[in-house]
């Protein structure tokens, strides 16, 4: 069963709806709760990375998240939390992957937020993208991005610059796009995550 970290950072209705459609069982991980009973963990997150980190601190779950051995998937801001630091609110984050979350503004000439469907290109073969066509489109909506880093970048996307649209380190995964809103490719990715 999947445990969804329930720390109050944004709406998770769409995520649980997608898991329901896929017949994937899940439960909510509330503040201070033990995560051992869950085979997989999802860290959702919408909104402000700095604010999300403060909420996560309040939940008292940080040490147990860092110690997790089962597969973990951070989505959007939940992915950004896995990095060292975000320019959004000048926030120190979990630092599970030593890379930074930066603002698009002033770095690219394109519109911000990066909103819509964009191509995701994997850097190497991964269970997470099994069966998903190369350069498949996923749905993005974000103003901050995680830099491209050969050590951690599992897939990249180009929007004025090349950034990490999926990252991985050991059992920790993160995706910048919203799989729950990305049509069939997104649903397949969620399904794949649960078989890792």
């Amino acid at each position: 069963m999947i445990g969804i970290i329930n720390y109050g950072a944004g709406n998770i209705f769409s995520l649980t709806a997608a898991l329901d459609r896929l017949n994937l069982k899940y439960g909510m991980v509330n503040a201070g709760e033990n995560m051992e009973k869950y085979s997989h963990i999802i860290i959702p997150g919408v909104g402000h990375a700095g604010a999300a980190m403060r909420k996560l601190e309040t939940s008292g779950l940080i040490d147990s998240i860092k110690a997790l051995k089962q597969p973990v998937l951070g989505i959007c801001v939940g992915m950004q939390l896995l990095t060292r630091h975000s320019e959004e609110g000048d926030a120190r984050l979990l630092n599970i992957m030593d890379m930074d979350t930066l603002h698009f503004a002033h770095k690219i000439a394109h519109k911000v937020p990066h909103m819509g469907w964009n191509k995701v290109s994997t850097c190497y073969t991964s269970e997470l993208f099994k069966g998903i066509p190369a350069d498949a489109y996923f749905y993005f909506v974000h103003s901050y991005f995680i830099e491209y880093n050969p050590t951690f970048t599992l897939a990249y996307t180009t929007y004025g610059l090349k950034f990490s649209s999926a990252i991985q380190f050991n059992n920790f995964y993160g995706v910048q796009f919203h799989p729950e809103k990305s049509g069939e490719a997104g649903e397949l990715l969620l399904k794949n995550f649960c078989t890792i």
């Binding site: 519109k111 990066h114 909103m115 469907w117 489109y137 929007y159």
Partner: peptide, 15 residues
């Protein structure tokens, strides 16, 4: 050019 950049952002035009 600005127009060129707008046309080639990588993001699909949405319907």
């Amino acid at each position: 050019s600005f127009a060129h950049q707008l046309l080639n952002t990588g993001v699909a035009k949405r319907l």
